[in-house]
Amino acid sequence: MWKLADKMLSSRFLLGTAQYPSLQVMCDAITASATNVITVSLKRQISGSAPDNLVWQAMRKLNCELLPNTAGCHQASDAVNTAEIARELFQTNWIKLEVIGDDYNLQPDPFELVKAATILVKNGFEVFPYCTDDLVLCQRLIDSGCRILMPWASPIGSGKGMMNPYALETLRARLPDVTLIIDAGIGKPSQAARAMEMGYDAVLLNTAVSLARDPVQMAGAFRDAIHAGREAFNAGLMPERNVAHPSTALIDTPFWHQSQTS
């Protein structure tokens, strides 16, 4: 078990609910993932009359903690407004804060992000900021009151894995007391495992599961990879070395150095 904000969780795998081939596949994948936290979002209604709430009913049955996002926001004011709506709608003060600065790579706008985080923390939200791997930005978010950071591995939905492992390792080393969750850009279970081996507290992903050929099977693969990565981190990884060190002790092996001594 581990503590995320004010909740004790059994899984370090946070999973998104978007882009699945069907609602049933989404539900099955989330169940297979064994996640305790799913991300959700908001939408404006187009038609004039009340729609059915099939999606909402399905998500509620999954019995997961909900992490609403502020997707589509480019300004701090819009993100704050969206967060207030989400708090009432989902009855949670958790908010995945997304304030986007570029519509092509969807990277966060660091300035609006810090502005929004500052306001939301003051208004009682538990802010999960989606940020880049910039150490100074992360420090500013911590200064604004965030106790959780969610740096990207690479652009949302790209599946590229870690663009800058050095920066992510630096964040982990320099911010030992902050909950760090890799969010965005993970494409393969091995990439998620690598994040956990680095000591990251959890991984959040969506597209890597929802766009897999078999999302349910892939959800299980990520579940196992994230678990394995964390186990490896706890076990203590061997140090990386630049020269070879034989695994087998060579002294007194039958032909070791005999050609030099005879």
Binding site: A18, Q19, M26, V40, V55, L89
Partner: peptide, 10 residues
């Protein structure tokens, strides 16, 4: 007046 609903999200 706009009505806002829950929806799937990443």
């Amino acid at each position: 007046v706009e009505i806002i609903h829950p929806m799937q999200g990443g």
